[in-house]
């Protein structure tokens, strides 16, 4: 499974609006996406990135690193690129869409 690591740019971490935006984006992807919190260089238990509850359960704060995984497929790389770009943005600062 293709994986990608990224630091969380949003000030509140992966909660509230940033969590909602990621879950929405993950749910809209053509392949299932998982996310795990990276602690001391090791990825923890992955959860469904499309579940807000799953994201909240990770307890990811601003600056923490996460590992995204997309199911093996032609689209996996572009899916991960898009979600990495999303998490590299301060989603609290963006105007509401």
């Amino acid at each position: 499974m293709p994986r990608r690591r990224v630091g969380i740019a949003s000030g509140v971490g992966l909660h509230a609006r940033p969590a909602a935006l990621l879950a929405k984006s993950a749910a809209a992807q053509p392949v299932p996406v998982t996310i795990a919190k990276v602690t001391d260089g090791a990825a923890g238990e992955p959860v469904d990135a499309a579940s807000v509850l799953g994201l909240m359960g990770l307890g990811v704060e601003h600056g923490d690193e996460v590992e995204l995984g997309a199911a093996d497929s032609e689209e996996a790389d572009s899916v991960l690129d898009e979600l990495v770009a999303l998490l590299s943005t301060d989603l609290d600062a963006e105007p509401a869409s």
């Binding site: 909660h15 959860v47 509850l53 799953g54 909240m56 359960g57 307890g59 704060e61």
Partner: peptide, 16 residues
């Protein structure tokens, strides 16, 4: 701050 978030995270993990 962090206490609030850790309770929320712990609860979310159980609720799945």
């Amino acid at each position: 701050d962090s206490e609030h978030m850790s309770v929320l995270a712990a609860l979310a993990r159980r609720l799945v």
